[in-house]
Amino acid sequence: MSTTVPKKITLRTADNHEFEVDEAVAMELGTVKTFFDENPDATDEPIPLPNVSSKCLSTIIEYCKFHLSLRARGNDSSSAEEEGKVYDEELIKTHDNESLVELILAVNYLNIKDMLDTLNQGVADRIKNKSVEYVRRFFGIENDYTPEEEAEIRAQYEWAFEGVDPDDD
């Protein structure tokens, strides 16, 4: 007789907060689902998520709950799709650059494909037509070119550096 998976699952974040969620919500997190698939006998102890902060996890749980409820509505697809889009846009809008990147890292670790796609598009929209300096700050990238090398690339592709949006950070 195999142990039935508990209806509620507890997740513990890096900063030691515990979140109790419905099994269906937890199964939206690919990493958690894989854990249960591989350990069907797992006890109901909290699952540690060492790469996820409580701030990110609460956003992620909200997202999963919302999209689960949309899917549960089934065939009423066009309005559900529209609502989903509005929700996703709002999600991007309410995060500044830094927290968006932090969220991507968490969602990537938890392996939630749809949410990751949404966030990726959000990031791409924020860096498109931006200056090189802006993109460096956005991602915290250290410029490891020598000034000569960078000047060479800029000279070679001068046209790509013209007419970028002003940095708004």
Binding site: I104, L105, N108, L116, D117, N120, Q121, V123, A124, D125, I127, K128, N129, S131, V132, V135, R136, I141, E142, N143, D144, Y145, E150, I153, R154, Y157, W159, A160, F161, V164
Partner: peptide, 29 residues
């Protein structure tokens, strides 16, 4: 920090070649 799949997806969401050309000046990697 991200696996390459994710970074690749972010960059493939860009639609203007000049973005890709310009971002090659961000850093060596």
């Amino acid at each position: 920090l991200l696996n390459c799949d994710v970074s690749l997806k972010i960059l493939t969401n860009l639609e203007d070649p000049s973005d890709l050309v310009r971002f090659s000046a961000v850093s060596r990697s």
